[in-house]
Nucleic acid binder design. Structure first.
Length: 269
DNA sequence: GATCTATGTAGAT
DNA sequence: TCTACCTAGATCG
């Protein structure tokens, strides 16, 4: 589900499956009907992601911008595509594959200027080659805002969601409420490549795993974790359970309207 | 079957 | 800081 790694995985998949082919683009639900008509029958030139945003660039110059939000989801299969059931915002069909999109926050055709504006307001994305971690550091270093809020701010770093935030802070022993400007630059220079590694692993596996080998269930004898995001994590949604490193019960609290999780021992205030 | 909850964001207050 | 958006799986009764 949708943190940055999911969108990059989708972009990669759509690129492989559809790029270079004409696509039948429809909106069975109707809410994207006028947009779909602008690209229906066109060849997909490229699919790419920046943070949690997905872009389908068609050869006629139109771009479909998709943001899954909290609920959005793609499903796909091989033809024939089944009769539409429920609220399908967009359906793509090629000669070899079909894909349905449900429940996105955004699914719209944008002009090149509008696309550029989205890229411009997004911060560096650890999964993109053009990412510059110094741009994020510049904002973090002068901000009184908590590091937890800064990491979720897509104009600071694009692609981090609640799970990567909680796990990255844990892995570097950072309390969520530490102000950005109190963060040590050397710590940030360790956090960024670590985040990039975690997210690349997420793209490969299609799930978020953040636990080092020595703390995995196979190494420690504890029961494997089964959560709906599917991965092995240190603190995300583990409130009250023992920290995998020190055994202290994990804290869980809503901060700035989002659930936060941390180990009070490994991540001192 | 009803209710709750979530990995996100924009806009109003 | 709050609400709306609007989906599906988990949980409740």
């Amino acid at each position: 589900m949708p943190e940055g790694h999911t969108l990059h995985r989708l972009a990669r998949s759509h690129q492989r499956t559809y790029a270079g082919q004409p696509l039948a683009v429809t909106s069975p639900q109707g809410r994207f009907a006028s947009g779909a008509s602008l690209v229906d029958g066109q060849v997909l030139a490229k699919a790419e992601a920046h943070g949690k945003h997905l872009f389908h660039n068609y050869v006629n110059g139109h771009t479909v911008h998709i943001h899954l939000g909290l609920y959005g989801k793609f499903t796909d299969g091989t033809p024939p595509a089944p009769a539409p059931v429920g609220q399908i915002r967009m359906r793509l069909v090629s000669s070899t594959q079909w894909t349905d999109l449900r429940g996105p926050t955004a699914c719209e055709v944008l002009t090149p200027d509008e696309v550029a504006a989205i890229h411009a307001r997004l911060g560096p994305d650890p999964l993109r080659r053009d990412a510059d971690p110094d741009k994020a550091w510049t904002k973090i270093a002068k901000s009184r805002t908590s590091i937890a809020v800064l990491l979720m701010d897509q104009s600071v770093v694009a692609g981090i969601g609640n799970i990567y935030r909680a796990e990255l802070l844990f892995r570097h022993g950072i309390h969520p409420l530490i102000p950005g400007r109190s963060l040590d630059h050397t710590v940030w220079k360790e956090m960024w490549p670590d985040l990039a590694t975690l997210m690349r692993l997420g793209v490969r596996r299609g799930r978020i795993d953040t636990v080092r080998d020595e703390h995995l269930p196979e190494a420690t004898g504890r029961a494997p974790r089964q959560d709906r995001h599917g991965g092995e994590v240190y603190v995300y949604r583990r409130t009250g359970q023992p920290c995998l490193v020190c055994g202290t019960p994990v804290m869980g609290e809503v901060l700035a309207a989002r659930n936060n999780y941390w180990c009070p021992t490994c991540q001192p205030a």
